[in-house]
Design a protein around this nucleic acid. Structure first.
Lengths: 132, 132
DNA sequence: TTCTTATTAGTAATGATTATTATATCAAAT
DNA sequence: ATTTGATATAATAATCATTACTAATAAGAA
């Protein structure tokens, strides 16, 4: 295993992911930090996001978007994404081990995790559509 | 709405996705058809996969891989992907409307669908790992 | 058959991500 | 404190998947 240093840039990348209410993309983290760290490179952001995921400090999440998004909340939870505006929100549901057991029975795979993602229309877009 | 013609290439792209046991990528469909249709263009495969998804004849599925995969089975079902070799398999579970209701209570989003994806280790890779 | 328009092949362009490389920085051992 | 060996960085090039563009072709209605 590679010994990781506790570098400044990795710290601020981590902070940006954790502190941010939305689930930011690599590009977003870069744009956010660039003004304060003008020498920051996009490659550094990508590499550190990868290291942080590997360390289990953040996770990469599925999205309807093209770009990967990252989540600093390691408590197990799901996400809803709005099919109209793309907004993404957390959903906390208790982890259902029964699902894993059922999937194992069907497939023979040793299930290590499952992810539930929802698609829907956010409250704002519901209002907008209703008034059309 | 655009009027769609019934083109030869769209038909064979559809057939390839439906007939194939694994869930093929665009690249895979292209390689599969290229020998029989030497003039086939990768762009044509991508465009037709997109049209077929839009028409509800196939669906795009989530994957650990970089490339999108497609599924010709429109019966609602989930997938497991092996974290070791990447193999992908169908899992049929009854759709749980209770999940959508719970997600709606938590988020206020009008839920239109949910997807459950499993990660695990396939029987083959389990055997391989056991014998190491 | 003719006309309109979708479809195609071929290729260029884009966007996200990864790889490369030379330099800088850290941490431990001397 | 200096050296040493490794990781981290910035800058940039390269890659991979996907989309856009364009001129030629073909479906199918008139």
């Amino acid at each position: 295993m590679v010994v990781r240093r506790q570098s400044k840039m990795r710290q601020v990348v981590y902070d940006t992911v954790v502190e941010h209410p939305v689930h930011p993309t690599a590009e977003y983290v870069y744009e956010k930090l660039k003004p304060q760290y003008p020498s920051l490179s996009l490659g550094t952001v990508y590499r550190n996001l990868g290291v942080l995921v590997e360390q289990g400090l953040i996770r990469k999440i599925e999205s309807l978007d093209a770009a990967d998004r990252f989540d600093g909340n390691m408590e197990p939870h799901s996400h809803v994404q709005c099919s109209v505006c793309g907004s993404l929100q957390d959903i906390f549901l208790s982890y259902d081990k029964g699902l894993d057991a059922a999937a194992n029975r069907e497939s023979g795979y040793a299930i290590t995790e499952h992810n539930i993602s929802f698609v829907g229309i956010c409250p704002d877009c519901q209002r907008t559509q209703a008034s059309d």
